[in-house]
């Protein structure tokens, strides 16, 4: 464990908590893409299948349980509990264009042709593009609530910090995983536009508005 990975996990956890609280407290999922949350639930499910078979540490197991539980709770709130507030008309990104290519790619490019490894690889590829429906929805509605932009910032920063974690691990542990690094780079690049708007607007107290 190193500081970058720890801060990354904290940032990821806080993004998940921010979103859960926003929906629960405001009893509304307006402006939130249910499709992205569905993709995240798939990402965690396919990545943490070894949750019960491969104990690494209490921290690792407990974080995995929290991630999986909270992603399902978020999907449940969007599609069931508060579905009346779900803005389906603006959440129109075709997720099959994300799931199919990443699934095919995980069969072609992986470290080991075994079910667990292919599912892990699929989850890494899918995570790198899972935020697209949400970013697409924000660009369609032309703006996002401030709390939603904080959620997106925390979520984007988590993988950016993981990039530094991989530099650290390459330097000091002679470890690197090219699949995770390339997917992490793609994931971070997708946020760049949003990072720019967040830093130039939201941090100055303005509302986040994307050129529609």
């Amino acid at each position: 464990m190193n500081i970058f990975r720890f801060l990354g996990d904290i940032s990821h956890l806080s993004a998940i908590i921010i979103l859960l609280l926003k929906i629960w407290k405001s009893r509304s999922c307006a402006g939130i893409s249910g499709k992205s949350q569905l993709l995240f639930a798939i990402v965690f499910t396919t990545r943490y299948l070894d949750l019960f078979t491969n104990f690494i540490s209490f921290y690792n197991t407990s974080m995995k349980v929290v991630y999986v539980a909270s992603s399902y709770a978020t999907v449940w709130m969007i599609y069931s509990k508060f579905k009346a507030t779900y803005d389906g008309n603006h959440d129109t990104f075709r997720v099959e264009f994300l799931i199919v290519p990443t699934a095919i790619l995980s069969f072609l490019v992986n470290h080991d042709f075994t079910p667990l490894e292919i599912l892990w690889t699929f989850s890494i590829y899918l995570e790198s593009v899972a935020i697209l429906p949400q970013l697409f929805m924000v660009s369609k509605t032309g703006e996002a609530e401030t709390i939603t932009s904080h959620y997106l910032f925390a979520l984007g920063i988590y993988r950016t910090l993981y990039l530094f974690n991989w530099i650290w691990r390459y330097q000091f542990e002679e470890f690197f995983d090219l699949i995770a690094i390339v997917a992490g780079l793609v994931q971070t690049v997708l946020y760049c536009d949003f990072f720019y708007l967040y830093i130039t607007k939201v941090l100055k107290g303005k509302k986040l508005s994307l050129p529609a």
Binding site: K64, Y162, N165, A180
Partner: peptide, 10 residues
């Protein structure tokens, strides 16, 4: 091998 270490990440 190397790759197994990676699986300690979330």
């Amino acid at each position: 091998e190397l790759d197994d270490i990676g699986k300690d990440e979330l």
